[in-house]
Amino acid sequence: MIEIKNLHATVDGKEILKGIDLTINPGEVHAIMGPNGSGKSTLSYVLAGRDGYEITEGSVSFFGKDLLEMEPEERAAAGLFLAFQYPVEIPGVANTTFLKSALNAIRKQRGEPELDAMQFLKLVREKTKALSMTDEMLKRAVNVGFSGGEKKRNETLQMAVLQPKFAILDETDSGLDIDALKIVAEGVNALRSPERSMLVITHYQRLLDYIVPDHVHVLAFGKIQRSGGKELALELEKNGYAEFGVNEAA
């Protein structure tokens, strides 16, 4: 599904990603863990096509296409979704309006018919309920005044509505209370399917109790330092990143 080869990326001349290799097959869930500032969000931004990153080396193929050549909205239409670590506020734009515009923009790019207001409302109501969100939150402006946890839940809702083929969850668990964590994890698990893959970025092995990954990777200093199964997360929880030469106090 996605094949990342020797990916190097710089920001303002500073190299952040220093040769990432990662292949994710359909149906797999991969987790990335790693110390603060190691480049996890940078990787997700580069994959999603955010401006301001220079790719100095390497390639990414997504369903056989050169991902790095595509515009962010084309990547979205091709099925890539990023749940942001810091979801952005858009004042004055109702959540429903935003979601409907997004869904129809994607459908349009794919040559599928757009959903009318009724069809959309039915879909969104269903997903909202599954995530224990209220209709009131749908009417509010995108992320404006949302609590940290509500923002994360809102990201999950968007994912549930847009039904991506490949979802990157950048610390979607942080800021969630215990109940919310379960609800969000259920939402994510509901999306798991043999055709869908996920890249879950997290600091806490707790999330991985709910979303059980097929593979766990440690990202430090811009590189994947170690890969393993879900037991690697437990090990990290216990020992930290000292083994990778990371000073915990830093």
């Binding site: 515009e71 909205e73 979205a76 952005v88 506020e89 858009i90 997004a102």
Partner: peptide, 18 residues
Amino acid sequence: QLFYCRQRGLSEEDAVSL
């Protein structure tokens, strides 16, 4: 804001409009 909208599938001009 623009990137957020585009990540969700909106073209840049639709994002500005929104």
